[in-house]
Amino acid sequence: MSELLKIVAVALVTVFAHMLVKQAKPEIAMIISIVGSILIIIMIVDAIGNITSSFYGIFQKTGVDTALLTPLLKIVAIGYIAEFGANICADAGASSVADKILFAAKLIILMISLPIITTVIDMVVALL
């Protein structure tokens, strides 16, 4: 709960600095918003670490092999980074560039999940 307050505080300061510098230097205001979002992520990064390690624990307990988990985590990471870049481009006004990033990220995610899809189809075919 307390880190949420810290995060909101950092976000507010970033927005104020962004507004302050916007009339004088819009480029540096853009950079300030990027830095602010990175700071917020770095503040919350250890929570993500706990989540992934507890996922590993759950997977080991249920006996599902962890080989399935790594592509899953990779897809989550790709989704996050693509969304991070797309939002920055959308902030700067280049929404077409943001859509290109999202489009490429979708293709990469599909590429990563292809082996899993093929294994599932093989299993189904073997059952029939």
């Binding site: 540096i28 990175i38 700071l39 992520i41 770095i42």
Partner: peptide, 25 residues
């Protein structure tokens, strides 16, 4: 001024990508 602020941002972006890489294995 722009170059100086860009240099400062580059280290942060690199740190972010490293943490994401180590986190999501």
């Amino acid at each position: 001024g722009l170059v100086v602020s860009l240099l400062m941002v580059i280290n942060l972006v690199q740190e972010l990508f490293d943490t994401v890489k180590t986190l999501f294995i």
